[in-house]
Amino acid sequence: MRLIATFIILFVFWMVMAGKFDLFHASLGVISCLIVTFLSGDLLFKESRKGRGKEVVRFILYIPWLIYQIILANLHVARLALSPRMSELINPQLIRFKVNLKSDISKVTFANSITLTPGTITADIVGDEFHVQGLSQPVIDDLLSGEMEQRVAHIYSED
């Protein structure tokens, strides 16, 4: 089941990339997708569990909020970069805090979201402890309020 899903995703990707829908290109695609599925079929879906469709829908609903936050982040960084009193405004510091997320995929989503949003970069994840570098004080307070963590936990139904 997992292998079939992997094969279908790879084949759709191949057809979009090839752009030609005749028999020759389709058969080439079938051969190469079979080889890739045979070699690394367990890479895309590591374990099979239920409720994946719900997660995908919730993740797509999460993206607009994320893009809004990213635009805010970029305006913040652009204002810092272009302001003449830059060295007084920024105050970089490394903080660490614990999160309640359990699975790997939710931690990855949370870490990438942190890197993309206001003035913070994930430096390391040790167990369930995140090391985060923040650029200035208000954005760190914003992160520690925990709104994003709740949203990510809601995607993977871990709240």
């Binding site: 990213i70 960084v77 652009a78 970069a81 970089p92 650029l135």
Partner: peptide
Amino acid sequence: FFFFAASIGLLRFPDFYARMHATGKGDTL
């Protein structure tokens, strides 16, 4: 505009970690 802000930030920020904020966000968006 965001590329411009990222490049200016890359030039002006005081250390490597702060420069990373400029490129990591400005270039993505």
